[in-house]
Write a protein that binds this DNA or RNA. Structure first.
Length: 568
RNA sequence: CGGGGUGUGGCGCAGUUGGUAGCGCGCGUGGUUUGGGACCACGAGGCCGGAGGUUCGAGCCCUCUCACCCCGACCA
């Protein structure tokens, strides 16, 4: 490729509002351009990278026996109604209508479509298992797009769906996909940590996010130091230590309490006791308007995901408003742990770790004292509903550390969730009976992965692409105005192309600084400079983007050096 | 969807108490340069996000809208 003819130039001034380094660099180096919020053009350079990411994924998926296909982007809305997902998906579903009034969803994920195509065939146990996948644009009407390619409203996703006769068979595929994902990200220069995560509406034991460690990531997770356990904060299980096991339970009483005592800090100050000795309530509302009071030990934070699971709230929870609190005759700061009608109460396991709690029945000038769970009050449900605090331990006493990362992919069990909801989503088993198939699903965000690679691989001058996803293999340029060197550059370009190396040749009549800075910014692994100076030194200047020093490579050794570099 | 902010040539920005729009980058032409984003000269390019209002007069004041960015709540 001749740089002079490449569409999409590097730019000098990037919007000050663009904060994320990957966003900035991709814009500045001419890989992407924003259309409207969360929707991006992939310029020729960016497209090259995207294709390479796709290639790596495709190669590894195929190697694992998965088969590529594609579904229409417009999904008949009836399919989404069949699984009752028109309202329950975590993202805003976009819909569209054709001239005849037929309604479609713009696909944000494709379980229904894949099940639909499979059920069009009369499959039997002999056809199972199989794994079909696609690369297709996904539409998610995110409330807030951000971070360049990391969170957008329209993106290319690899989504795979596997079909099995039973859970045992599915588990094998799950293992295989786990391995495949590690290999995929590894090849693209990303070190991933698989962490247990929430799969929302389904529950179940198998669901992992592949996370790349990063400060700017949106996923917070907990991991043991030996790596034997890693889980998203939404699902991480941790040990609740006994706070005051020596204390004897005392009779509950109502005591006077100054009016200024409102917050947890006020409590600690007034009673000179740690927050773990107090009771704390958080109120949520389900989609169907039911109020949930979650009660925790004062030092812990409620985890809405766990709370939702504990009360089987379909579609998640939202915080209750003052208006909601008024319907049960209370207000913020004065919610009791007990005594309401038509409200579901959920207690955290930590309620059993404290003898003689303070709080639970706060009024303007009084509060309850020496409250003991099981004796003075009981919740409708007692479950794990807390966010893991910093420095917590696993149940078997291993210390966990916090991590933060970008989720680049996930694998999860669907079970028979879709096959039981959708009509005729069955296979004929060996006993002649129709059974719903057992499913798994496997996603990778292509653009997000690309953004993450830049987030991880860059320096103060620009991007440093890993070999397998670089837009070109060689960035070649000629410096100085010597006609001999220019001639040599043109010949070398032809030679590189003939040898099969993807080459970007900066043939502009531009100053050295501009060309070299551009090369650094674009980040192609090998930079080749041809100039009077290099020729006098015996060849071409060879520099690896990730290294500091350059060296001279003789013209005759160029192809073998490149071959060696790219085979390594 | 809550809170905060910004909309002015392609991009980044300035624009005072209201008086009819400027700077840098980029772009075009000519010239001088040529190993780390050069310099000179000339030039093209603007319904000041949109609508309505106040005023003799609005980029600036008021109202309403739209878009985008940041912080939260939700997700590859």
């Amino acid at each position: 490729m001749l740089y002079s003819t490449l569409f999409g130039k590097t730019i000098k001034n990037v919007d000050q509002n663009v904060k994320l380094i990957s966003h900035r660099l991709l814009l500045q180096a001419g890989f992407i351009r924003e259309s409207v919020a969360g929707r991006y053009y992939f310029l020729p350079l960016g497209m090259k990278v995207r294709d390479k990411v796709v290639d790596v994924i495709e190669e590894e998926m195929d190697k694992a026996g998965a088969q590529k296909m594609i579904t229409p982007v417009l999904h008949p809305l009836e399919l989404w109604e069949e699984t009752n997902r028109t309202s329950s998906v975590g993202f805003e579903l976009m819909t569209i209508e054709d001239q005849r009034g037929a309604k479609f969803a713009l696909g944000g994920t494709a379980e229904e479509m894949m099940v639909d195509v499979v059920r069009k065939f009369n499959i039997s146990y002999k056809d199972l298992p199989f794994n079909i996948y696609q690369f297709s644009p996904k539409f998610r009407d995110e409330k807030r797009a951000r971070g360049g390619l990391l969170r957008v409203r329209e993106f290319l996703m690899k989504d795979g769906y596997s079909f099995h006769a039973d859970e045992k068979d599915f588990k094998q595929e799950y293992e295989k996909m786990w391995q495949t994902y590690s290999t995929i990200f590894d090849r693209m220069g990303l070190k991933t940590v698989p962490i247990e995560s929430d799969n929302g509406y389904i529950g179940g034991d198998y669901c992992h996010e592949f996370v790349v460690n990063s400060e700017i990531g949106e996923s917070r997770f907990l991991m043991t130091e030996d790596g034997s356990y890693a889980a998203h904060e939404e699902v991480a299980v941790f040990k609740r230590e006994m706070i005051n096991p020596e204390d004897e339970p005392k009779p509950m009483e109502i005591i006077e309490q100054p009016e200024w005592v409102q917050t947890m800090e006020d409590n600690e100050k007034h009673y000179k006791l740690p927050s773990s000795r107090f009771l704390k309530n958080v109120v949520y509302k389900t989609k169907d308007g039911r109020l949930i009071i979650a009660t925790l030990r004062g030092d812990l934070q409620a985890n809405p995901i766990k709370v939702a699971h504990a009360v089987k709230a379909v579609g998640g929870l939202e915080p209750a408003t003052d208006k909601d609190l008024a319907t049960i005759g209370t207000k913020t700061g004065y919610v009791h742990c007990w005594g309401y009608k038509g409200v579901t109460t959920v207690g955290d396991l930590s309620l059993k770790t404290v003898v003689n709690f303070i709080g639970g029945q706060k009024e303007e000038k009084t509060d309850s004292f020496n409250v003991n769970y099981g004796r003075d009050f009981e919740c409708d449900v007692l479950a794990d509903i807390a966010l893991p605090p910093e420095g917590c331990m696993t149940e078997d006493g291993k210390k966990m550390v916090e991590g933060r990362g970008i989720e680049v992919g996930n694998i999860f069990q669907l079970g028979t969730h879709y096959s039981t909801k959708m009509d005729k989503a069955v296979f004929t088993d060996s006993d002649g009976k129709a059974k719903p198939y057992y499913m798994g699903c496997y996603g990778i965000g292509v653009g997000r992965t690309m953004g993450t690679i830049v987030e991880v691989h860059h320096d103060d001058k620009g991007i440093v692409w890993p070999k397998n996803v670089a837009p070109y293999q060689v960035h070649m340029t000629q410096l100085g105005n010597d006609e001999g060197a220019a001639q040599k550059a043109r010949e070398t370009y032809e030679k590189l192309l003939a040898a099969g190396f993807e080459t970007l040749y900066d043939d502009r009549d531009a100053r050295a600084g501009e060309k070299l800075n551009n090369a650094d910014l674009i980040g192609i692994p090998v930079r080749l400079v041809i100039s009077n100076r290099s020729l006098e030194n015996g060849g071409f200047e060879w520099k690896i983007r990730s290294e500091e020093e350059s060296r001279i490579v003789a013209e005759d050794d160029l192809i073998s050096e490149l071959t060696k570099f790219y085979e390594a």
